[in-house]
Amino acid sequence: MYYPLAEVSCQYKNEKESVMRKLVSVVMLVAMMVVSLGSFVRTASAEDVKITGVITKIEIAADQKSAVAVLKVNDSGELVSIIITDDLTLDKFKDHRIVVGDEIRTKFEKNGDKNTSKFFKKTAGC
């Protein structure tokens, strides 16, 4: 069969594009599965924990963008380290509105050994 050169080139290009499209689709599908699986694993392994305890130590990171507070849990006496990243709580550490010895009610996301604060406030009064 005779194909003009331009037509052959065009056909070859179309086949190549088709293969590329399939490849991209497969890669996208795999990527989505990986992301979904990752999210599932993260959801499955992470849990929210609520505790009340007294701060025994506060360490603010050198870049001032995070801190670790160690709480002695009221009920068990266990020491729990919690990472704090929200600006308001960090500011309260810096100007000593929250200090060692304060009793805190906190909710944090426990993901393996990493506890990330979602709520970190002094116990209220009235």
Binding site: T52, N74, E103, R105, T123, C126
Partner: peptide, 9 residues
Amino acid sequence: KQDNGFYEP
């Protein structure tokens, strides 16, 4: 009753 033994409204 809160878990620190105090009460809140």
